[in-house]
Nucleic acid binder design. Structure first.
Lengths: 188, 188
DNA sequence: CACAATCTATACCGATCGGTATAGTGTCGC
DNA sequence: GCGACACTATACCGATCGGTATAGATTGTG
């Protein structure tokens, strides 16, 4: 593993458990076994390190989400795929998702939030677009796409947060129940 | 306004916009117009300042929530009251609720999280107890009280977060829609 | 071989971090 | 007038913060 990857890996784990502001550069380079100038060579500054983490993980996620969120006139099927993309990603990248969750709810003027929000906006746009298309087939959904996208993301994040705390298992049964409940709010 | 209150007020505003870790003691005392020893006289250390904020705001909230969450064999009515308690509190104490939201999703090993989680557990217990009682009248709810409590809190926090970002208005119509959807998941 | 480019380590920077020792204040009951 | 107490200011502490100047090592290329 090269030094760049080592740094990213250690930063990921440290940020996940103690937060971006709570971890100093010195601690990252110590646990990586490298030194400061090496880190600054690759990432420029602390914010660049966080940005690199998001580039590494979030872009992969967005690609999968875009695939799942194409509308083929079967909204329940699309939602099912989307839910799976979220939970699969959160399960296989739990440390990164912990960071993501913390930053999405972080104070708006913190540096870390401003990095995260640039990325977190994309899934919202993707889901919003899905609901706009679906509204052509479901008249009562009109003009609620923003609320639907936000509610769906919020619900999934909530279950993922519970999962990360060990409170629930993200299995097919939970997915079915959650989506069933969500769709009731849409179609009724 | 005495110095103690001045400090609490300034700390509240600063923590809300830049986070607990992102705000230094020096900045708090500067904007309060007092000096460090005064702050440390009242609060002991930085963590004590955060604890004092939670004592000031969260305990008031918990009292109201306990009132709303008594079960009188009308679950929809209880949920309606609970929703109002949450949204009313969030609206009149938006800075504090921003801090609360950030800390609930903060990394588990951060100091701030460990303070917040001691308080945040109480509403969960209160709501859990409500669902346990309600299960006596609704057989299909058995053994799901933890999931119900977590889902309800998650949903309300999600709407409150949207409200704090200016995305939605927390009015009666939203409450009705949200609870309607939530109860569908319970009673079906 | 020489040269440039990439990468890494030693040592250091000023600023800020949370926290405190000391020395006062003012206001009480006595 | 008195000590006791709650409160506040000046000045300072070691540690850590994010970041860098300088130089040495390594590597691919001519």
């Amino acid at each position: 593993m090269d030094n760049r990857t080592k740094i990213l890996q250690c930063a990921l784990e440290l940020f996940a458990v103690r937060g971006y502001d709570g971890v100093g550069i010195q601690e990252i380079v110590d646990s990586s076994g490298i030194t400061k100038p090496t880190l600054y060579h690759y990432f420029g500054n602390k914010e660049g390190l966080l940005t690199a983490l998001f580039d590494e993980y979030f872009n992969r996620f967005t690609l999968k989400l875009r695939d799942a969120a194409v509308y083929d006139r079967d909204l329940p099927d699309s939602l099912d795929k989307i839910f799976s993309v979220y939970t699969d990603f959160a399960k296989t990248n739990s440390s990164f998702y912990s960071i993501l969750l913390a930053l999405v709810f972080a104070p708006p003027q913190s540096r870390a939030y401003q990095v995260a929000v640039r990325y977190a906006a994309e899934p919202f746009v993707i889901l919003e677009s899905l609901f706009i298309q679906a509204a052509q087939d479901h008249g009562n959904m009109k003009n609620r796409h923003r609320l639907y996208a936000a509610s769906l993301i919020g619900m999934m994040n909530n279950f993922i947060a519970l999962h990360l705390n060990g409170a629930v298992e993200l299995n097919g049964k939970l997915k079915k129940r959650a989506l069933h409940q969500f769709m009731y709010g849409i179609f009724s």
